Simulated scan of single mutants.
Amino acid sequence: MATRRRIPFLLVAPTVLVLGAALGYPVGWQVVTSLQKFGLLQQFGQPPEWVGLDNYAALVTDPTLWAVVARSIVFCVVVAATTVVAGGLIALLMRRVGTAARLTLQVSLLVAWAMPVVASMTVWAWIVDWRRGLLNWLLERLGVDAAGHNWLAEPLSFFVIAAVIVVWMSVPFVALSIYAGLTQISPEVLEAAEIDGATGWQRVRHIMLPLIAPVLSIVLLLQLIWDLRVFTQIKLLQDAGGVVNETNLLGTYIYQLGTGSGDFGTSSAVSILMLVLTLALSWYYVRSLMKEET
Rank of each mutant, 00 (worst) to 15 (best):
E188I: 01
P210E: 00
Y253T: 07
I7T: 01
R95S: 15
L139F: 00
T266R: 14
L250Y: 01
V69H: 04
L182D: 10
S177L: 11
T232G: 04
L138W: 03
H149A: 09
G242Y: 08
G260V: 02
Y179I: 03
L257K: 04
S288H: 13
M115W: 14
I178E: 14
E194P: 01
Y179S: 11
L156H: 14
V215L: 07
L275R: 05
R96D: 10
M169F: 12
S72E: 06
F264D: 02
R95E: 15
L11D: 03
G242F: 06
F159R: 11
W124M: 07
V68C: 08
V111N: 13
I207D: 01
G98H: 10
L279D: 06
Q256E: 15
N55T: 00
R229G: 06
Q202C: 03
M94V: 10
V189Y: 03
I234Q: 00
W124H: 09
V270T: 05
F158S: 08
L10G: 13
W50A: 03
V171S: 04
N150G: 10
A101V: 14
V31K: 02
A13C: 06
G251Q: 10
E191N: 14
L277D: 02
V97C: 06
G251W: 05
R102D: 14
I73L: 15
S177R: 07
R132L: 09
V31E: 02
A198K: 06
N245W: 07
A100E: 13
V123S: 06
L211V: 05
V166S: 12
K37M: 01
W124Q: 03
I185Q: 10
V107D: 07
D129K: 04
P48T: 09
A100M: 14
C76M: 15
T122D: 08
G262V: 08
